[in-house]
Amino acid sequence: MQNINKVKQIHTDFKQSIWLDFIDREIMWSGKLQQMIDQDGVRGVTSNPAIFEQAISSSADYDADILELAKSSSDPEHIFFSLAISDIRQAADLFASVYNEEISGADGYVSLEVSPLLALDESATITQARELWQKVDRKNVMIKIPGTLPGLPAIRIAISEGININVTLLFGLERYEAVVNAYIAGLEERLATGQSVSQIASVASFFLSRIDLLVDPMLDEKDLSEMKGEAAIAAARAAYALYRRLFSGERWQKLAEAGAKPQRLLWASTGNKNPAYRDTRYIEELIGPETVNTAPLGTIEAFRDHGVASAKLESGTEQALYMLEMLGTAGINMQDVAEQLEKEGIEKFEVPYRKLLGAIREKVKL
Results as ranks from 00 to 15, higher is better:
Leu83His: 01
Leu83Ile: 06
Leu83Met: 07
Leu83Asp: 04
Ala84Trp: 02
Ala84Thr: 03
Ala84Gln: 05
Ile85Phe: 04
Ile85Ser: 02
Ile85Met: 04
Ile85Thr: 06
Ser86Thr: 13
Ser86Tyr: 06
Ser86His: 10
Ser86Val: 00
Asp87Pro: 01
Asp87Gln: 08
Ile88Leu: 11
Ile88Phe: 09
Gln90Pro: 00
Gln90Trp: 04
Ala91Val: 12
Ala91Arg: 00
Ala91Asn: 07
Ala92Phe: 03
Asp93Glu: 09
Asp93Tyr: 00
Asp93Gln: 05
Phe95Val: 10
Phe95Trp: 07
Phe95Thr: 07
Ala96Val: 11
Ala96Thr: 14
Ala96Cys: 05
Ser97Val: 13
Ser97Pro: 11
Ser97Ile: 11
Val98Gln: 05
Val98Pro: 03
Tyr99Pro: 04
Asn100Cys: 10
Asn100Val: 01
Asn100Met: 10
Asn100Ile: 01
Glu101Leu: 09
Glu101Asp: 15
Glu101His: 14
Glu101Gly: 10
Glu102Arg: 15
Glu102Gly: 13
Glu102Asp: 15
Glu102Lys: 15
Ile103Thr: 15
Ile103Arg: 15
Ser104Asp: 06
Ser104Pro: 09
Ser104Asn: 11
Ser104Met: 14
Ser104Tyr: 08
Ser104Val: 15
Ser104Lys: 15
Gly105His: 03
Gly105Asp: 06
Gly105Leu: 05
Ala106His: 13
Ala106Lys: 11
Asp107Asn: 13
Asp107Glu: 14
Asp107Trp: 01
Asp107His: 06
Tyr109Pro: 01
Val110Cys: 12
Val110Met: 06
Ser111Lys: 07
Ser111Ala: 14
Ser111Cys: 14
Ser111Arg: 02
Ser111Val: 10
Leu112Thr: 07
Glu113Tyr: 08
Glu113Lys: 10
Glu113Leu: 08
Glu113Asp: 12
Val114Gly: 01
Ser115Val: 07
Ser115Glu: 09
Pro116Thr: 09
Leu117Asn: 13
Leu117Arg: 15
Leu117Glu: 11
Leu118Phe: 11
Leu118Trp: 04
Leu118Arg: 10
Ala119Thr: 07
Ala119Asp: 00
Ala119Met: 04
Leu120Trp: 08
Leu120Tyr: 14
Leu120Asp: 09
Leu120Lys: 14
Asp121Gln: 12
Asp121Asn: 15
Asp121Leu: 08
Asp121His: 11
Glu122Lys: 03
Glu122Thr: 11
Glu122Tyr: 00
Glu122Ser: 13
Ser123Asn: 12
Ser123Gln: 15
Ser123Gly: 12
Ser123Ala: 15
Ala124Cys: 03
Ala124Gly: 08
Ala124Glu: 09
Ala124Tyr: 03
Ala124Arg: 14
Thr125Trp: 04
Ile126Met: 03
Thr127Asn: 12
Thr127Cys: 08
Thr127Leu: 13
Gln128Pro: 04
Gln128Ala: 07
Gln128Tyr: 06
Ala129Leu: 11
Ala129Asp: 09
Ala129Ile: 08
Ala129Arg: 02
Arg130Asn: 10
Arg130His: 10
Glu131Thr: 12
Leu132Gln: 05
Leu132Ala: 05
Leu132Val: 09
Leu132Lys: 03
Trp133Ile: 00
Trp133Lys: 02
Trp133Met: 01
Gln134His: 11
Gln134Gly: 11
Lys135Asp: 12
Lys135Thr: 11
Lys135Arg: 13
Lys135Ser: 10
Val136Leu: 03
Val136Gly: 01
Asp137His: 01
Asp137Leu: 02
Asp137Val: 04
Asp137Gly: 03
Arg138His: 04
Arg138Met: 08
Arg138Thr: 07
Lys139Asp: 14
Asn140Ala: 06
Asn140Phe: 06
Asn140Leu: 08
Asn140Glu: 05
Val141Arg: 01
